[in-house]
Each structure stands twice: as C-alpha cells, then as structure tokens.
Design a protein around this nucleic acid. Structure first.
Lengths: 199, 199, 199, 199
DNA sequence: CGTTAAACGAGACGGTACGTCATGTCTTTCT
DNA sequence: AGAAAGACATGACGTACCGTCTCGTTTAACG
C-alpha cells in the first residue's frame, strides 16, 4: 500500500529551529530552573501548542537541542600516545561538564533522570558521555582486557563525580587520573604494551 | 555571654519530626518530583507556614531528613585487608545510591544541585559520599601518596556514574573496581605497605 | 476605527455568567464578608485564574453582578401626581436598600468604598441610587429650582441613612419624607407649578 | 456578700491606652484596610493575646478608640437662631464624616456594619450621629411637631449620603440643606413660628 | 483554481503549587 | 493571674506554569 501523500500544511522547520534555539538560550542565560514551556514559546515566537505537538517533555526538547553539540564536544582527535589521548579526552569531558552549554543541559538531564524514569531512559539511549568514552578506550587501548562497561565507568566516573558533586573543575588534575586509569587499564604487562607501541 | 532564656512558645519537636518523616515517605513513595510543600504539610498534619518558618527550601528539608541515614549507611566496619575494606565500601555505596531511601534523596539533591546553586552549596557542605570515601581511604590505605580529593573521586566516581547514568546496579563488578583502585592507589610498593601494617 | 479581529480562544460567556451568579448567591447566602475568591471559583466551577483575568477586585465582580438588578429595582413607573411618584420611589429605594439582594450588594460596596478608594471610584461611576433619584426628580418636578446634587441628597439621604445606620425599615414613614421633600422642593409656588403642568 | 478581692496581676491601663492609640494612629496613617490585629499589637508593643483578652472584635476597639472624639466633634455650641444652629451642626457633621479621624473610623464601622450584624448592633447602641442630631433638633426647634426619628434622618441623611457615596464635601451647600430642613421642619405655620421667636 | 486538511499564532480555560499574610489559639517564661 | 513572646493550624491571597481547548489564519497537496 502506498503511503498517503502528506496532506495539509507541513511542519514548519523554522518553528522547530526557533524552539531548539530558544531552549538553548534559556538554559544558558537563566539556568535550567528558569526554562519554562511558556518561556520557550514566547522566546521562540511560537504557540505553546506547537511545542506540545512535537515533543512531550521539556527533557526531550533539551536533549534534542544539546545532543549534537554534546557529541561534537566530546569528540577528541587521536593523539600519538594513549596517555595523551586519554588526558585530552578527560580534559574535553571536564570542559564539557563544567563549562559548555551542552554540558549544562546534560547535567540538567542527568538531574531530571534521578526522579523521572522517562528522562532516564531517554538519556540511556543517547548517552553521549558513555559512547565517547568507549570510543576513546577502544582507540587508545586496543587489545585491553577490561570489561568495557566498567572501564568506561572508571574512566569517566571520577570527572563526572567531581563536577556533579560541585567540586571546583580547576582543581582537578586530569593527568593523574589518566595515569591511574592507564596503569591498571591495559590489563597487559607494561613491557608488552611498550613493545607494541615501540615497533 | 549568657544565652537569653527562651521566650515564647518553644518549637514543636513533634512537628519537626512529622515533617521530616513526611518528606522521607513522600520521596520514597512518589519520587522527588511529586514532593510538594503542600503535600508535606498535609501528610505531616502541619501548617505550611510552620515549614517555611524553619526551612527555606525543599532541598534543605530533604537533606536534613536523609543526612543521618546517609552517614550511617555509608559507615562500613573495618575489615582485615584493604581489599575487603574497599569492596565492602563500594558495595555499601552502590546499595546506598541505587536502593536506599536516603540514597534516593541524595540523588534527588544532586539532581537539584545541577540547576540550583543553593542546593549545590548545601550539598558540598554535607557531602556524605565524599566524607565516607575519604575515611575509608585513610583507614584502608594509611601512608598512601595520593592527593585525597582525586583519590576520593577515583574511588567513588565509577559507582556514582554507574548509578546516576541509569546503568543496572546488578551488573556492576565492585570487586574489579576495588582491585583497580588498589593497584594504583597506594603509591608505595606492596611490600612496604605490608611491612608497615605488620608492626 | 475597525475593531481588531478576535484572535485566540474567545472568552467563555458561560464562565462569566457562572461567576456573576455565584457571587450573587454567595452574597445573599452568607453575606459579603464570607465572599471569597476561592469560594466564587468553586461555586462557579471555574478556575481562580479566570476570575483574575477579567476582574481585579471582588468589588468589581459584585458591582457587575448587581448593577443591572439595581437599576431595574430603582426604576419606578410614572405616577399621576408628584407626591405619588416620590412616595413610590422612596418605597422602592427602601425596599432595595433593606431587602433586595442587589441592595445587599450595594450596601456592601458602599461599605467597602469607605476604606478602599478604588471601590469608591467604581461606585461613583455607576451610582444607581443617585441616578435613579435624579431621574425621579426631573420627572416629578419639572422646572424646579433646586440644585440637582443637593436635591438628590435630600431625597435619598434620609432613607439611605435610615437603613445604613441599622434602623428598622418597617418603622420609616416614607409618606412624611416625601411630603417634606415636596414642600420645599419645587422652589416655586404651588400655583405656578400647577399651572405649568396644566398646559 | 463581699466582692472577691481581685487576685493576680491587674489589667494594665498602660497597655489599654497603647492599644487604643495604636488603632487611632493606624487608621489615620494607613486607612482602615491596613488595620490589622498583628499591626496593632506590634505598634502598641503589646502581645496579641492581650488584645483578645479585652476586646473580641476589631470593630469594638475602633469604636472605643473613636467614640469620645466623635461625641466631642459633633457637640456644637448653641447659636442665636435655629438657622445658625442647624448650619453649624451640619458643618460639624460634614467635617466629622469627611475629614476627621474619628469620622474615618465611624465610616469604617458603618461599612463593616453592612455585613456584620454584631458591628451593626454595636453601632446602633452608640450612634453618635443620631444622638447629636436629636440633641440639636430638640434645642433648636423646641415644640416642633415632627417624629424625632424621621426628623433625625431628614437632618442627617443628606450629608451622610453625600459623604458615604463619595461625593466631594467641598461642593455641598449646607446652608441650603439647613434652610430646607427648617422650612418644613417646625410643623407649625411660619407665622406662628415667627411670632414665637419674635416675642 | 477551488477544496481539503493539517500546522500554526493566539490566548482563554480548569488545575495545582507557590510563598505570603492575617487570624485566633496555644504554650512558654517573666512579672 | 496578667503580660510579652512567639509557635502553631487554618485558610485566603495573588501569581506562575501546566497541559488542554477553542478560535481564525496560513500553507500545502489534491481534485
């Protein structure tokens, strides 16, 4: 059966963009607490109904508004040595969580997820932090013998905890964290690892 | 200076307890999102004004209601070996964060703290997780050479991330995490450490 | 100038009517003191916000709810002689002030006006008593030489005072009042007045 | 039987005076609407309970606070002719109602009385306006043949209505009102009245 | 090129929680 | 026993968003 050609006025791409931008701006300007559907609608010059037509949750909009930026900011170019790679990633992660707008949105979503199962699921599906971490591990430490989930948590957890528990990002020594992660990470003897890289 | 004799009707301890219990119950039953000052008041059989008289924020009440339990649940009795000690702590932390009522409150507070500076400060001052972690580290690894803040983050972070990012607590291998932490933790040779304890 | 096309959902006439009726009922049943915005809303099956959207004061609603009835009850059909006309009016006024629902509302408004300038102004603008009195004077005593404001006060004042100062309406002899008013009212000799009407 | 000796601390006359003054001041400064039991207590430096111990209504306090002043302000010294006497009284009444502090309180009480039967009764018992009017009538027009209640209403009503309905006191011509009242007041032929005075 | 139908803006509606305020009662200590 | 202090339950206030609901208008594809 052929899909009926779309009838009626098509969705306004302009409205969609305006809404996402409005959310972004509002989170940055006034913080998540001040993000209100009414506010978004007014800011975007859009009717409230239009928002409800396409999203069912404030979290959904926020996620859509920040997902792409998040992915980008956590994408770290490959470095020569695993150590450099890991440090670069941790720095990016720290900046993302503590400074970036997308990170603000992400933290807000994590917060919501603690008392909203739907948001939790949404976040689990997207998981920009977990995915980026896994990529880095696979790239920097091929052939490691760790279980990936635990490894991800070991890599990301300390920074995540640091920022979300309200500690000062400037005081975190990512070099030490990277070193510690690598020391026990590879799961192979250092000699072996050195040989591998050396050739 | 002598404290002024108390004048006027004294604060009702009964009301205070009722409020804290009500908050506890409501968080557990319906989640933080559903905790409403109106609801607390009704549940506790107390006037709204009485709540406002003593607390200025929902978060403050929640913190006071859960702080003691939190501290208790994260208090782990000493074990023979550092490894046992650390594993026991991580298990307690995992249970606290993922299962306990006080942990639910704590996670809710962390969530709020992401978009409410006052809550963030409140949480930084209390910080049951950070404190308990520091205690365990000092006890299990005396003479270690790590910077305590980073060490705390390394110990707690992975579990913290695991639970708050919505991963399944049952699938986390705390033994591996403990082992990894200890491998790079002491910063002194194992022999040295053993000798120290031996005397 | 052309009226702006209506945009958005139109005001619900049903809600408006329900509110006005509810106010009417409440004033009659429980007195003005017991009229509460919450009560009106519940009685009318309407949200509180809807009331605030259209009226800014309890008094405004009350005025709108009673103005039409007031005007009607103070409208007295013309009689043969000025004396009959005036007596009929005074009786209507007495009944209005002491018995009628609209009168109850009016007295409540006068009461409010004594300590609320906004209500006072509102009342001055509408002034069903003053207006009806002026009409009667002009009709019953054409060509009189009194200053209308004072004449109005002379006509209405005694009854107004009687009722508002809590005297028993049954004991007021409106015939005497009418006679007194007419005796000094016309300001022209009775003969002259009669001649004028005669032609 | 001998009166039981008074036991315990006697009522503080100082507190009583402070309360009455506070009420007076508050009515004058901020209007009746702003008079609050809490406010009175604070202003008088008195506990709220003390007020409740001696008065049961805000109106009662207000009445007690203003009754003496009211009586005094409506007491008009005798004049040579009835006309002068009546005009003087009407002027005093106008000033009382529209300007005086005690008058403000009185009007507020009349307002309350419209929707509070207790206040109405209280006011009927005291009735400074009615009493003063009756005195003036008896003094200025001895031997008149009017029914006193109606006469009182005729004398007082127009001014009462004028002020309470929010008309401008400056625009009221009390001379005309007095003349009108006197013209039909005596209830005896003018000749007779003239003769009486003439001798 | 007119009809049809969905998207859109505006904004009113019933709800519900907010934080504040005043009320009248109560429980202390002090006088 | 009276008084000051102040906590308490109650309940209205006016405000803010929520999510839903009409309206009239706009913008396509369809016939």
């Amino acid at each position: 059966m052929i899909e009926r050609q779309q009838v009626g006025r098509p969705r306004s791409e302009q409205a969609r963009a305006a809404i996402l931008h409005a959310v972004d701006d509002l989170v940055v300007e006034s913080g998540y607490g001040a993000v209100t559907l009414k506010g978004i609608a007014e800011r975007a010059g859009v009717s409230r109904q239009t928002i409800y037509r396409w999203w069912s949750t404030k979290a959904e909009i926020l996620l859509e508004a920040s997902a792409i930026d998040a992915r980008q900011e956590l994408q770290v170019p490959a470095h020569e040595t695993p150590a450099e790679d890991v440090v670069a990633y941790l720095d990016a992660l720290l900046a993302f969580l503590s400074t970036s707008d997308a990170g603000t949105a992400y933290r807000a979503l994590v917060g919501e997820a603690q008392h909203d199962a739907k948001v939790a699921e949404l976040l689990r599906d997207t998981d920009p932090v977990g995915q980026s971490a896994a990529e880095v591990i696979e790239r920097a430490l091929p052939g490691h013998e760790m279980r990936l989930p635990e490894a991800t948590a070991e890599l990301v957890g300390p920074v995540f905890f640091w920022v979300l528990s309200g500690r000062d990002p400037a005081e975190l020594d990512t070099g030490r964290l990277a070193a510690a992660f690598l020391r026990n990470g590879p799961g192979v003897s250092r000699a072996t690892a050195a040989r591998r890289r050396g050739r």
